[in-house]
Amino acid sequence: MQPILPTPLLLLTPGPLTTSDATRAALARDWGSRETDFIAMSEGVRARLVALAGVADTHVAVPLPGSGTHAVEAVVQTLVPRDGKLLVLVNGAYGHRMVAMARRLGRQVALLEAPEDQPIAPAAVAAALSADPAVTDVALVHCETTSGLLNPLEAVAAVVQAANRRFIIDAMSSFGAIPIDGAALQFSALVGSANKGLEGVPGLSYAIAEKTHLAASAGNASSVSLDLHDQWRGFESNRQWRFTPPVQVVAALAAALDQLAAEGGIAARHARYSRNCDVLLDGMQALGFVLFLPRALQAPVITTWHIPPGGWFQFDQFYEFLHQRGVIIYPGKLTAQPSFRIGCIGAIGPDDLARAMAEIGAFVRAYDPARSAA
């Protein structure tokens, strides 16, 4: 028998996240994928996504069923020409995943790598582009959720634009959580997911793609279901998804977008997440945990913590202690150092983070000999 856990659960992860009652309620209704109400709702979601990015005149939103990884792979194979070359800027696992995708898809690929605790240096990007004229496209993970590091999006975008290359932004963890001024950036695609900063549920990802480049990308994709161009043409021709859409997930995202607008937009959500992050950082550091990143590089999305020394801390024990109290965290994803991760986004506020800190404090007092003896 499964234990009865406290409610509501605090999903302090990079996604899926704790969702609101209104978002969960939107999942309760059935929709026909070809009915006019659902088609209108899909179109409304698409329009609101490009409006949030500030690029409604130049770009179009193309949603896809599946996780964010599905949309990233769709963008790579559709928007990077078969004879093109992709430069991936890597300082974590998700950049490496994009390199693996490009190689599997048969694209020429190069990588410019920085350590996991250091942002991508725009000057290094400029030098790499100057040294390799074959590069046609550049990809950056804006918030690398391996560590929680926020890369310098605007500065990198300016370098890529000056070099006359196309720019792909993996904004999976940042879009909706951190303001992105799309009107001030030049990008061929921005990729996101419903179940992160927008506070929807898993099962839908999207690319906000430049119309001109998307129109010229016919035939690039080697996959039928992940052909972003063909899905866009389908929406343009009859406003419908080519294959069965995740209808309830679309409805939940529509409800989540309503709530984002009511909250005051992305700037207001970023402010809430920043308050959450402050409570988390202050609380964890007061308990003796050491943050992986310098605080100045930490995005208010997910945080990475070193495993404490001394042998008293066992992650599985820590996870289960919190799990039994309704707080869900994540194992680490760093390649070099043992770690764990705690997120601060979703339909939660500073009081929820304070609750989590109280539970983590109880664990420390129970298991850390230095604290339990004090």
Rank of each mutant, 00 (worst) to 15 (best):
A370I: 11
A358P: 07
I328K: 04
P308D: 04
A100I: 00
A124W: 04
A61M: 06
M41S: 00
V224A: 13
Q317V: 12
D137R: 01
A123G: 12
V290I: 13
V249A: 09
L52G: 00
R269Q: 13
L9E: 09
N276I: 01
V62W: 13
R233S: 10
D227S: 07
Y330A: 07
L281W: 03
D57G: 14
F363Q: 01
K196L: 04
R107G: 07
P338G: 05
G197P: 12
S147V: 10
G219N: 03
A362Q: 08
G264Q: 13
I120Y: 10
V75S: 09
T13C: 04
A163N: 03
E116C: 12
V60Q: 05
P81A: 11
P3C: 01
L297N: 07
N151L: 04
A183E: 12
E73H: 13
G265S: 10
S33Q: 14
V50C: 05
R165K: 14
L297T: 06
L260A: 09
L111D: 15
M1A: 11
H142P: 06
G106C: 12
A131H: 02
L12M: 10
S339L: 00
A74H: 09
L185C: 10
L86E: 08
S222C: 12
M357W: 08
T19V: 15
R107T: 09
F167T: 08
P202H: 08
F313L: 05
E116L: 07
A25C: 00
V160A: 09
L105Y: 13
I168Y: 14
T58W: 10
Q108E: 15
G197N: 10
R233Y: 07
P16T: 06
G343Y: 01
H59V: 02
C277T: 06
I329F: 13
L322Q: 06
P115Q: 01
L150H: 11
F289V: 03
Q259W: 07
M41E: 03
A255M: 13
A71P: 08
L287M: 11
M101Y: 14
P308K: 09
R371P: 02
F289Y: 12
E236K: 05
I208G: 03
L140F: 05
L153P: 06
A261C: 04
E320Q: 14
S20V: 02
A56K: 07
E199C: 15
A194L: 03
G283W: 04
T69H: 14
A162H: 08
A47Q: 15
A299R: 06
P338E: 01
A124H: 08
G346L: 02
F243I: 09
D316S: 12
H59D: 01
W232L: 10
L293Q: 00
A131E: 14
V159E: 15
F292G: 06
F38G: 00
A131R: 13
S217R: 03
N238G: 03
E43Y: 02
A347M: 05
I178V: 15
A347I: 01
A373T: 15
A71D: 09
L297P: 01
